[in-house]
Design a protein around this nucleic acid. Structure first.
Length: 470
DNA sequence: TGAAATGTTGGGGCG
DNA sequence: ACGCCCCAACATTTC
């Protein structure tokens, strides 16, 4: 019998197209998951992520059991636990998918060093991305900082490899050490009654089977009209709903790429562009590890934000008085997810109208999104704030009323999340303060749009003036 | 993956 | 018939 292998699951919670698992299969396998909140520091799992992880680990554990192996679950410092387990079972290799988070890269290096000291090694596979961030370079051998040439370079690499099949059987490690039960991880805090995540399970089915069902449903019908429908938050099935499944690696970008190719319809190209935005974000995080904290455009370090706990609280609670903003924040709270068009609108409102630092918004999303991913979240907030790579020009200030009227013309979206507006005349639902009798129970605008826009543009001008003098 | 201000054009009402 | 004004529709510029 060949020597056993340890497969370290981190953010690739699937059996299909899992290169780490594929490499280890054929030998006795110990699958391991370590809940390591310490290594991530302030970017440890947010609340909604913990809800998802709890359910996804149960699904993964079930699938592995059916194939013959038992998922070993542990809690603590992974860089110590993983090498210790490898030593205990006599594994020469630890296989895992490569991660792009700066803290995870540092931890992988330390883990590899510890393993090496005992003649073992950590083998990292291309698993969560179509290609490794360091494999795509400009002609001048530099990382990309603009989306379009990056996507061209990615296409120039040709079709990604076909997905790998799941192992049909896994040989367990003899005398495998027992791990914890998922319940013992205590991923979900003691619930308030009713818990804030009580609506999540009506919307989501974490785990690989749920991911496959979503993908199949999207390919069967929605991808066809994706080009137009993706911007209509009030419609069901306008988007794929795959973001949390991709974030947790319950489905791989290679799988969705090939599924879209097979569909061969109009919306396919638009949707693949979104997948490539995800790749681009990881590319940026890999090459600019400070991205979660600091603006990529250094000029924006001088931006005169005006941190204000009251304004931030109103935005978080969905009480700004702008229906499209408030509905988005309610959808986020109740489902752990927000439509992408609405994410742009609420982010623009926080950063520009309310002059709150984008980092504050990114933290809120981090805690509340089930699909929160450090690369995509940081890159997208910087994009909206105008300080990111290939970012929207700062002066592109969304008008929350016009955006609402354009993308939610009948008010279906805002009515669903804001009961107070459910029966307001669609002509006025995005500007309820103009109604003869404004709806009871809905706040007046926290500030006038024109005033907020003006102030944002002045702040931008002040930053640029200050930078020129410097 | 904007919005608002400003500029231009052309049709129609009207004296 | 003509000039004038109004203004919608579109284009351009600016933030």
């Amino acid at each position: 019998m060949s020597s056993p292998a340890l497969v370290w699951f981190r953010q690739d919670l699937r059996l299909e197209d899992n290169p780490a698992l594929h490499a280890a299969a054929g030998r006795p396998v110990l699958p391991v998951f370590v809940f390591d909140a310490e290594a991530a520091g302030e970017w440890a799992y947010g609340g909604a992520q913990r809800w998802w992880l709890d359910a996804s680990l149960r699904a993964l554990s079930d699938r592995l059991t059916r194939l013959g192996a038992t998922l070993h679950i542990a809690r603590g410092r992974a860089e110590e636990i993983v090498p210790a387990l490898a030593a205990q079972i006599g594994a020469a290799e630890v296989h895992a998918g490569r991660l792009t988070e700066p803290w995870a890269r540092a931890r992988d290096e330390r883990t590899h060093t510890l393993l090496q000291a005992e003649g073992r090694r950590l083998v990292l596979h291309t698993s969560a991305l179509l290609t490794e961030p360091h494999r795509v370079r400009t002609k001048e051998d530099k990382p990309y900082s603009v989306y379009t040439p990056f996507s061209r370079a990615l296409f120039a690499l040709g079709e990604p490899p076909a997905p790998l099949p799941a192992p049909r059987h896994l040989a367990p490690v003899a005398d495998a050490p027992a791990g914890l039960d998922v319940d013992k991880l205590g991923l979900l805090p003691k619930p308030p009654a009713p818990p804030w995540w009580s609506g999540f399970e009506r919307v989501w089915e974490p785990g690989e089977a749920g991911a496959q069902r979503r993908l199949a449903r999207f390919m069967a019908k929605a991808v066809r009209g994706y080009d137009g429908a993706r911007n209509t938050p009030g419609a069901e099935d306008g988007t794929s709903g795959l973001s949390p499944h991709l974030r947790w690696g319950e489905v791989s970008p290679r799988q969705v790429w090939h599924a879209a190719r097979a569909a061969g319809v109009e919306g396919e190209a638009t949707w693949l562009k979104e997948i490539i935005w995800r790749e681009f974000s990881h590319h940026l995080l890999w090459h600019r590890p400070q991205m979660p904290e600091a603006p990529l455009n250094p000029q924006f370090a001088q931006f005169p934000f005006e941190p204000d706990a009251r304004l931030l609280r109103a935005w978080k609670a969905g009480r700004t008085g702008y229906p499209i903003v408030d509905a988005g924040m309610r959808q986020l709270w109740h489902t752990g997810w927000m439509h992408n068009r609405v994410r742009m609108i609420v982010a623009s409102f926080l950063v520009k109208h309310l002059l709150q630092p984008w980092q504050a918004g990114a933290r809120v999303f981090w805690d509340r999104l089930v699909d929160a991913d450090l690369a995509s979240n940081s890159a997208s907030w910087q994009w909206v704030a105008g300080c990111g790579a290939d970012a929207a020009p700062y002066f592109r200030v969304f008008n929350p009323v016009l955006q609402g009227e354009k993308f939610d013309p009948d008010g279906a979206y805002v009515g669903r999340w804001l009961p107070a507006l459910a029966h307001v005349n669609p002509k006025l639902v995005h500007r309820p303060w103009e109604a003869a009798t404004p709806p009871a129970g809905y706040p007046a605008p926290i500030l006038a749009h024109a005033e907020g826009r003006d102030r944002a543009l002045k702040a931008y001008a002040a930053m640029r003036g200050g930078a020129e003098q410097a």
